[in-house]
């Protein structure tokens, strides 16, 4: 409700009934969002508050001791020998995942946007990993990535000696990123495909008349027009990348060393495997702050990235 609308409402109070259009609208607005807002309060805000409360405690689950220790867990963040490396691994994992996921999704979307016979089959096959069970997916990849596994077998066939993928810090990181990308790129691919189909065809025809090359068409017409989708998917992908750990647990257990231990896996270990719920909660709060800051920054940057905004 703008201020002028308010003052008008005040001025006309005597003439008009209490339930003005604006008031009715506002009431409807609150009613419409009430279920979700109640849900967010109950299932997100209150639990988050509780997690913060836990983070101020030393909580040994087995011995059921729950002792207030103030900011000790937060001080521990600063002295944790492993944490800097964990944060570094997280940054590399997320950056690699987002870049690879977005570019592959865009490439596939462009390919699948062609008028070709049987394109439906290709779309379905590229999408299929999304619905395959995570357990089956990671197990087969852990076998493919073995030193004597399928990938090195294929490389050997063309005379290349492949690395020991999961046992070398660099290739292990590449492996966990790639396996995660193949599993989920189908979702972004579909979003991009939809965005590509939303681009009016007349624009391309006009560009062709002007003699623009396909590459130029892509840069000047396609990219700007799908930039809102790019922004949305990049936010979702970054947020999602910070929440991946089941695959890492199966493929590398965070190793070799702790080179693929990302933050969410680290907090999972601390809380659920080491039973250190207090410190685990502190790491949760740290993760939440990181995600929130990143998302906020991206949202702020949208005017630069996105071509138009409603």
């Amino acid at each position: 409700m703008t201020s002028s609308a308010t003052s008008m409402a005040v001025r006309e109070k005597r003439k008009r009934p209490f339930w003005t259009m604006e008031r009715r609208d506002a009431a409807a607005g609150y009613l419409f969002i009430a279920p979700q807002l109640a849900g967010i309060t109950l299932f997100v805000l209150i639990p988050l508050g509780l997690v913060f409360w836990y983070s101020l405690h030393e909580w040994n689950v087995l011995a059921s001791t729950f002792r207030f220790i103030g900011t000790e867990n937060y001080e521990r963040l600063l002295t944790d020998r492993d944490l800097p490396r964990v944060l570094g691994a997280t940054a590399i994992f997320s950056a690699g995942l987002v870049v690879l996921n977005m570019s592959l999704a865009l490439l596939l979307a462009v390919l699948l946007n062609q008028k070709l016979a049987g394109i439906t089959i290709f779309r379905t096959l590229f999408f299929s990993p999304v619905v395959v069970s995570l357990v089956a997916w990671t197990i087969v990849w852990s076998f493919l990535l073995q030193n004597n596994g399928g990938i090195n077998g294929m490389l050997a066939a063309i005379g290349v000696e492949g690395p020991n993928w999961l046992r070398n810090p660099t290739t292990a990181m590449i492996s966990v990123i790639v396996v995660q990308v193949f599993k989920n790129v189908g979702l972004n691919m579909i979003l991009f495909l939809a965005a590509l189909q939303g681009v009016p065809r007349e624009l391309y025809e006009a560009a062709r008349v002007d003699g623009a090359s396909p590459f130029k068409q892509f840069r000047r017409i396609t990219l700007p027009l799908i930039s809102p989708t790019v922004l949305l998917t990049s936010i979702i992908t970054i947020v999602g990348s910070l929440q991946v750990f089941a695959q890492i647990a199966v493929l590398t257990q965070g190793g070799p060393g702790i080179s693929t231990t990302v933050l969410v896996y680290y907090l999972y270990q601390q809380a659920f495997q080491f039973h250190l719920f207090g410190y685990g909660s502190t790491l949760s709060i740290l993760l939440f702050v990181i995600v929130a800051v990143l998302t906020f920054a991206q949202w702020q940057m949208r005017r630069k990235i996105v071509f138009y905004e409603n």
Binding site: R167, G254, G255, G257, Q273
Partner: peptide, 18 residues
């Protein structure tokens, strides 16, 4: 006591052995 944490720490250190 605290085996999970010890297990994980030793696992990470032993990687250098292999």
């Amino acid at each position: 006591e605290g085996f999970a944490q010890i297990q994980q720490t030793v696992r990470a250190e032993l990687d250098a052995l292999w």
